[in-house]
Design a protein around this nucleic acid. Sequence first.
DNA 1: TATTGTTATACTCTATAACTATA
DNA 2: TATAGTTATAGAGTATAACAATA
Lengths: 152, 152
Amino acid sequence: MTKTVPEPCINEVDASCVETLLGYNARRAALAVIDVFLQRMAPYKLRPVDFSVASLILHNPGITSRQLCSTLGILPPNLVGMINTLEKRGLIGKRAHPSDGRANGLHASAEGITLLRQAEAAALALEDDVASNLTASERKTLIRLLRKVYQD
Amino acid sequence: MTKTVPEPCINEVDASCVETLLGYNARRAALAVIDVFLQRMAPYKLRPVDFSVASLILHNPGITSRQLCSTLGILPPNLVGMINTLEKRGLIGKRAHPSDGRANGLHASAEGITLLRQAEAAALALEDDVASNLTASERKTLIRLLRKVYQD
DNA sequence: TATTGTTATACTCTATAACTATA
DNA sequence: TATAGTTATAGAGTATAACAATA
């Protein structure tokens, strides 16, 4: 009989205690996608948040800052800089809101529309790559289940 | 025939442009879980990262800082403070590594083991709550698909 | 020469308080 | 009085460079 000697140094880390947790896996997956996003969207100078903001403006002409904040879960003070940057780049513009003198309606400019369409195509393409280990059906399921987690 | 008047103000925001993206949904879901985590784990004074680090030490006695970093995707300088805090709280301790004089083997103390077992039970309970809209099968599928996104 | 652990530090992201203009 | 947008600022999170001790 060989005596079992205790081995105080870890060769293979057992990460099952965290890998079984939804929060851990969601965060790791989100960071992995964001990592690829930052690389591939660099030509458009759009971070994930900028892209979400600009894309929502593109598809919702006249949307207000407040609506962007509540949709994306951003705090108003943190949106100001993003909007100003997009405006300085000539991608969006502010117009007087038709019924509320305090608010601005946000609209994509002609250049904004052109660039954002390219950016959206690039975003779809990078998501195809980052989800290359998933079938189309699995990807659809994944998104559906993620929405069930954070929606109400 | 009533004339269709263009409506420049958005009543219902169309967020489909971002809600169809994997990255967006993964990030929103991760933030939702982390939000609940911060509230429910406050009694143990453990943020998500602290919990992951401590839990890995508990289940891998003798693990090194370097191993923790590569497992969790943390940078070494950012781990130092967490380890020191856990040590000052008396939850973990450093011992000389058996074969590498540069490294420390990290071990949970008796108090650490007691607290971390409670914390792990609390983590499982809060994940049950945050995933209450999912069946057991859906939750298992969700975690499996998330791992396929960020692994290799 | 390469690696572990560490310090110092810069940069980004997120959160809070308070102000103005309008509803 | 409440809300939209803004400013200033504090705090948390994340990143790089450089160093001492050991492999």
